[in-house]
Design a binder for these strands. Structure first.
Lengths: 226, 226
DNA sequence: TCCGATCGTCAAGATCACGTCAAGAAGAGG
DNA sequence: CCTCTTCTTGACGTGATCTTGACGATCGGA
């Protein structure tokens, strides 16, 4: 869930934003002044900050600088001042967007979506598993052996291996493998499986005749054993 | 140098922005309508787009969608309409910022800096990589050989190379390459890929017949090996 | 012990994908 | 208007990959 930190000194704005954001399934924290904002940002690590420039204890631009010192969380600035100087100062201090009061809640939510969309690019987990002396990197679509050499797999081999590796330890039936790799009308051509499982073992297992990770479950299917 | 594409149908705004941006050392392209904007964006690959919603030939939101189909270049929208509906529509279509006319040039420039700063932060840890005797400098959009000579790449060649280099070691599927370089409707024209990969190898690989960095994964895609 | 089912292996032809060459079309610049 | 670059499109030979069939080996049950 996306965490939003709202910083404003007007209780009614705080309340309105909290209600609207919660209704959109955001996780909302609120702060009434700059000091609390910096403290909460450090402790709760929000995914986005909505910041009013008119705070009682410190200048809003100082808050932006305080945040930018250690994070580049997206910051949307609210302000009653429409002056060009203020906008330039806030944006150059590190803000990502600037909205002048009074503003529509719909607009603010749209801007929240816009900046989170852009910031969402990072953060993908890529699994990698070991088979004997080889490392299967699903994200990079590559198999490397211990000394860095590449093992080349054909598209069908990859497809088959990927299904097995994505269900580690689980038995995958022949029907499902055939259906997923070759299509719905190939559910009884088990010789395809025999053919390609043998090729995978030749390329990946230390002793292809005695597989330790790509196992056969007679009569049922195959299993990848990590 | 940061390339900016300015799209507006009012010549005086075009002129004012061109002068101001060039003074700030931006590389400026201009377009007077949506069709020209989409064409120029495809051929010149700007780093940021400034887009007026009131275009003579098509709705501005359509232009945003047309761009978002194949690129996520930052888009700053200009508009005379201050209505909340327009802002929400534009931002949700994929715009990154929304500025209402009349606007101050200083403010627009600050917003340009804000979005480019964020776009740069997203994926910029690989400014330069090595391919054989050549150095590919993504930031400078240039390829140099060891003795300082420059290698000229066409826009299409550069775009293709850039995608591969930005995913070092990763397999990039043919579909994704075709989609990102040529557009959504070219996802099966693999002969384009063969053509341009061959040209890149001729220009960059020491032995184009035996590529060591721009590798083919038969049936699946291509891979840049650092 | 025999028998049937299932699996691993080998070997072939058919098919597909890739690299390459080449030529026309479209666009940019002078 | 002309020239040069770049993009698009087609065709072909070659090699890798897929498909298909066949043959022992192994195992469990009759």
């Amino acid at each position: 869930m996306t965490r939003v930190l709202v910083v404003d000194d007007e209780p009614q704005i705080l309340r309105a934003l909290r209600i609207n954001l919660k209704a959109r399934r955001y996780d909302v924290e609120v702060a009434g002044d700059g000091a609390a904002a910096l403290r909460l940002a450090a402790s709760h690590r929000p995914d986005i900050v909505v910041l009013d420039l008119g705070l009682p204890d410190m200048d809003g631009v100082q808050v932006i600088r305080g945040l930018r010192g250690w994070t580049n969380v997206p910051i949307i600035v609210l302000s009653g001042r429409a002056g060009s100087q203020d906008k330039v100062a806030a944006l150059d201090a590190g803000a990502d967007d600037y909205v002048t009061k009074p503003f529509g809640v719909d607009e603010l939510l749209a801007r929240v979506r816009a900046v989170t969309r852009r910031a969402a690019g990072a953060g993908e987990e890529v699994p990698a598993v070991e088979i004997g002396r080889h490392t299967v990197d699903l994200g990079a679509h590559a198999v490397r052996t211990g000394d860095g050499a590449e093992v080349r797999l054909t598209p069908t081999e990859w497809h088959l291996l990927e299904i097995l590796v994505r269900h580690p330890g689980r038995l995958v039936s022949q029907r499902q493998l055939l259906h997923d790799v070759w299509g719905p009308q190939y559910q009884s051509e088990t010789n395809y499986l025999r053919q390609y499982m043998a090729q995978l073992r030749r390329k990946l297992e230390d002793d292809p005749a005695r597989p330790r990770h790509l196992l056969t479950e007679p009569g049922m299917g195959y299993r990848f054993q990590p």
